[in-house]
């Protein structure tokens, strides 16, 4: 009985924590794509940048992981603004800009991957942070590390905050109006370019937050960039581009599918199962589950 409970609780916590991080990154990606039509192929590298910077601050400067994470997420704002001003905004009016943006962001991804590989990649092959909150809390028979509990709460808190912001705040609502219909939003007096910039900054910030949380919960290496980029795209497509709700629901579904299937089959099958699930959903509802 205890064994069953142990495994059951491990499934719930794993599903929640991986799902929440997936959801966060996918939400960042979907905000940018929904507003600007910018499929950011460099989002995995942004995610990685967030994690690596936290790692540097913590291991190099002895900063506490939480403080480092907060600083890095704050630093993502000027980072995104510079990128927007220097590069992203030039393509706002290109008709098939999604493709142009895919090229540009692939170029960016290559640049960041190159930088990481010639710096961090030569220093070590694994990046591990000390526990942000050492110790373990017992949930019945299941020992749950407090750091992961912390990461989970922050991730869920951020998702909830994002949600409230998009529903209730003036800017958030303008953002959603742009998601739904650019022209109509412009006619109603929404500053579409301003919203584009805002969406890019917000999306980047959320992706960075995902990266820093991931770094707190797991050891990681440079291969995580591409895996995360692809998972985030997959969640966005299934959830429906531009839908933060879709990202959250599908992110959690992906996290739980992987965790549950892991119980019955080997982890490769588990990974495979959500890829197949994604294809099936796409065939049934090509525009994504949560599009209006």
């Amino acid at each position: 009985m205890d064994a069953l409970l142990l495994i059951g609780l491990s499934v719930v916590t794993t599903g929640l924590i991986t799902g929440a991080i997936f959801a966060l990154v996918a939400a960042g990606v979907t905000i940018v794509y929904g507003a600007i039509w910018l499929p950011n192929a460099a989002n995995g590298q942004f995610f990685m940048l967030g994690g690596l910077l936290v790692w540097s601050l913590v291991t190099g400067w002895g900063m506490s992981p939480l403080l480092a994470a907060a600083l890095v997420v704050a630093a993502s704002v000027p980072f995104a603004l510079v990128l927007e001003k220097g590069l992203i905004r030039y393509f706002y009016d290109v008709p098939d800009r999604n493709i142009v943006y895919l090229v540009v962001t692939l170029g960016l991804a290559q640049i960041f991957a190159g930088i990481f590989s010639s710096t961090y990649g030569r220093w070590t092959d694994n990046y591990s942070l000390p526990a942000a909150w050492p110790g373990i809390v017992m949930i019945g028979p299941f020992p749950f590390p407090k750091t992961r509990l912390l990461v989970l709460s922050i991730a869920l808190g951020l998702l909830a905050g994002l949600f409230v912001f998009l529903r209730l705040h003036r800017v958030g609502r303008a953002l959603r109006a742009v998601f739904q219909n650019r022209e109509a939003a412009a006619l109603r007096g929404v500053n579409v370019r301003g919203i584009y910039r805002f969406a890019f900054v917000l999306g980047t910030l959320v992706v960075f937050a995902g990266g820093t949380l991931f770094a707190m919960a797991y050891s990681f290496d440079l291969t995580a960039a591409w895996s995360m980029a692809i998972v985030a795209f997959a969640i966005m497509i299934v959830g429906g581009p531009g839908s933060v709700l879709g990202s959250v629901v599908i992110g959690l579904v992906f996290g739980f599918t992987q965790a549950i299937v892991s119980v019955f089959a080997n982890p490769t099958i588990a990974t495979f199962s959500y890829l197949v699930a994604m294809l099936v959903i796409l065939l049934v509802k090509p525009s994504g589950l949560f599009t209006r």
């Binding site: 142990l6 495994i7 609780l9 491990s10 499934v11 916590t13 794993t14 924590i17 991986t18 299941f142 991931f214 797991y218 990681f220 291969t223 995580a224 895996s227 992987q258 965790a259 892991s262 119980v263 982890p267 990974t271």
Partner: peptide
């Protein structure tokens, strides 16, 4: 590319 082993650790 796997990142989490909690379920397997419990098993």
């Amino acid at each position: 590319g796997a990142t989490d082993a909690t379920v397997q650790a419990a098993q």
